[in-house]
Nucleic acid binder design. Structure first.
Lengths: 196, 196
DNA sequence: GCCTATATATAACA
DNA sequence: TGTTATATATAGGC
């Protein structure tokens, strides 16, 4: 075994790249670690009220980015503090443009994942605020009783849609393009009807 | 006792911003977390051979940045991927953009659906006995924080009102709190309904 | 900062 | 994917 069993390989301990398994294992590791890293970013932002941006290029060259309030917002805030280089070459090559889109799509997915994670964290806060118990949606289910379950179900569905919509909005506002279009996938009117 | 003892407050557990200690404690927390976050960044880079950049603005406005191979190197690699949007370009670009929009929307929807499903599973988690007295809908606004998720906040607010009404309605019908409904939440069928 | 108790993160596995 | 065994991360105290 390259490593005992569970070994985050972090801290001031091992980390043996010399015995890197196979490409597949490394990808799994990357995926897991990236996920954990982004979660940490979200936490730092949420718990400490910090602005955070994290951009990662996998070994394969795939781009992953996370930002709070948004990637571009934080980058814009950072840029002025380093007014050294801002210009870059034009990217008018079609293939590059296509690759860019693909990568941005992934970035968008990450944004969504991040938002969802944040939602989880928020749920946790609520639970703790009430002194510990089940998650709010479950608590609510109990509180409402069987009769109201369907209605609450619709409300929960709306929350899901809301997250999606929020991400879309962020994407539209951000100068960073491709992320800009997950637009109005739902009908506002119906949602208002559900919870008004 | 804001928190038991050791509580990374991560994952799908607590994180109580409602009881944000004092400014000093938060700074300590920020410092520790930022340290941990940067360490994670370094690890990801080292173990997985990824390029990583992480920029953080503390609540006080202080800047912290880490990059591998370097902050600027990764930012330069990232910037070009978001520069093709400035000039509206031609038909080809529009067509590609449209396709990208569709792909992106699907990806985002998938992510959200997946997260919703995960939330459903999380519902099985058991939390300890209730200690606080506040209801979750009384604290959600605080939990959401400083306008990070305006839409979600608004939706949750409506949900709060909605639930409040139903709780009142139940209270009028049944003066004694029925703990019998708890079992309902464990019913897989109910959970399916929640996300239908 | 260092220490301790807990909660997480995650590598190896199934 | 989900599970499990261990190593880390980290809140609270000193």
């Amino acid at each position: 075994m390259a490593r005992p069993r569970g070994t985050p390989s972090t801290g001031r301990h091992r980390i043996e790249m010399s015995l890197r398994p196979d490409k597949a294992s490394r990808q799994v590791t990357f995926s897991k670690r990236r996920s954990g890293l982004f979660k940490k970013c979200s936490e730092l932002s949420l718990v400490c009220g910090a602005d955070v941006v994290c951009i990662v290029f996998s070994e394969a060259g795939n781009l992953f980015a996370l930002g709070s309030p948004s990637v571009d917002a934080v980058l814009r805030r950072y840029a002025p503090l380093h007014a050294a280089d801002d210009d870059d070459a034009g990217v008018d090559d079609d293939r590059e443009a296509l690759e860019e889109m693909c990568r941005e799509r992934e970035a968008a997915a990450e944004q969504v994942a991040a938002e969802s994670a944040r939602m989880d964290l928020i749920g946790d806060e609520v639970v703790k605020a009430q002194g510990g118990r089940r998650f709010w949606w479950e608590t609510d289910t109990e509180a409402l009783g069987e009769a109201e379950l369907p209605e609450f179900a619709r409300a929960l569905g709306r929350l899901r849609d809301n997250v999606s919509r929020h991400v879309n909005k962020l994407a539209r506002r951000a100068p960073a393009p491709a992320t800009a279009a997950v637009a109005r996938a739902e009908d506002p009117a119906s949602r208002l009807d559900l919870l008004a």
